[in-house]
Design a protein around this nucleic acid. Structure first.
Lengths: 221, 221
DNA sequence: CCAAAAGTGTTGCCTATACACCCATGT
DNA sequence: ACATGGGTGTATAGGCAACACTTTTGG
């Protein structure tokens, strides 16, 4: 599935089914795996009809569903993927495809509603301990803009002050040196930042039970 | 795959292949998914010939591998699972099956070595922010015994003092009220503890960017 | 009385949140 | 000047690792 922050809310791309089962219901894009095709390649192929795949800033595998009853036509095994599109892009979508806010999903086909739910949980957790933010944000941004993206994805308020501090200390963000022009109401011009790395990295690896700092070097005991 | 702490080291159960490809190499137990069978049920069925499935204290899905070349006989898609056996059990294994320490694996068939590697990473991470320890430990134990289990699984030294504090504070452990007899060398009798929950729970949900207790936005779960 | 093992008290460090204050711009 | 939005300084709180110290046993 593809997710993007649009207009301050996190959205997921859904496709309206024309045929039974679940005709008229919204579903995640997907389709059968071809012989000699990787799952990742298959995802790219399935999405090609919806968005330009180059617009995906991140793609990761979620879980594999195998309930024999998940498709009334018969047994299917489906592996879900999560793709992210940075907020400054606005891919042209086909007629039957649209963005839906994740906090107000319509009736969905199959088990797709629950798949979106677990994708959400995964994305939110990773915003805390990795740099996934890079995949939702434009190339450069002010802290205020980044905050809006985090708020949309996390679903709760985050202050720009603390977001800036956490991400700068970890080295996730770096200043570009440029500033943004203030709005019509004035105000100090915002500095523009960018993510230091364009690929997923774990930035807060150990919650607790960290390996003792002075015993990493000398090897084993 | 099945993992267990044995004799102070984390082990994984492997099976010696009799036939080509990879004849003689060690492999993870597994096999084809039957029609109308859930992946979880399939895992249980595959393992039934190796261990008594009731001995598994935890089972969770890992990733799905789809590289067309992962099996020289032709395309296969495989979903890996991680099962854990508490350290006080010693399942009887078939002739061709044995435990191998994860820090000294033999040559393995297919991509199984790399699958074990990612399972290890996942298990270690979860020891930090969940109560998975319950699945590796016996029903009750002293802190010293639990420490040995954590050390084996994590691969680095952990002090009993701090382990106790972290797990007690989080409510992951609770005292049974019983004490263990000291060894022949004497020493204060250890209190015995148990895990408060026999199922996986996330005990340290947010690394950072926690929702401010009073500012959770309405309607955005 | 001593050694061994278990558990507690205490300290210091680090991280994160909250909030006050200062800075730079438009009107 | 003043309003507006951006950024920094500082106080506070909490979690964790390290280590000293106390408790309880066997010899």
């Amino acid at each position: 599935m593809v997710m993007q922050v649009r207009a301050g809310r996190l959205h997921v791309m859904l496709w309206r089914r024309a045929n039974e089962p679940f005709a008229g219901a919204w579903a995640l894009p997907g389709g059968p795996l071809l012989p000699d095709e990787t799952l990742g390649a298959s995802v790219a192929r399935q999405l090609a009809s919806k968005v330009e795949v180059q617009q995906l800033s991140h793609l990761e595998q979620l879980e594999t569903r195998s309930d024999p009853d998940r498709d009334p036509r018969g047994r299917t095994v489906a592996t879900a993927y999560l793709g992210l599109v940075p907020s400054h892009l606005d891919p042209a979508l086909p007629e039957d495809t649209a963005w839906h806010p994740t906090d107000g999903l319509p009736e969905t086909a199959f088990d797709h509603g629950s798949i979106v739910g677990s994708a959400l949980g995964r994305l939110r957790a990773k915003l805390s301990y990795t740099n996934v933010g890079f995949a939702l944000a434009p190339p450069t941004f002010s802290i205020a803009e980044l905050r809006d993206i985090y708020v949309a994805a996390l679903g709760y308020e985050v202050t720009a002050t603390n977001l800036q501090r956490v991400l700068l200390r970890r080295g996730v963000l770096e200043a570009t040196g440029e500033t943004a022009a203030p709005g019509r109401a004035g105000g100090r011009p915002a500095m523009r930042y960018r993510f230091a790395s364009p690929a997923l990295e774990v930035t807060d690896p150990f919650a607790v039970l960290k390996p003792p700092s002075d015993r990493i070097l000398p090897g084993r005991r």
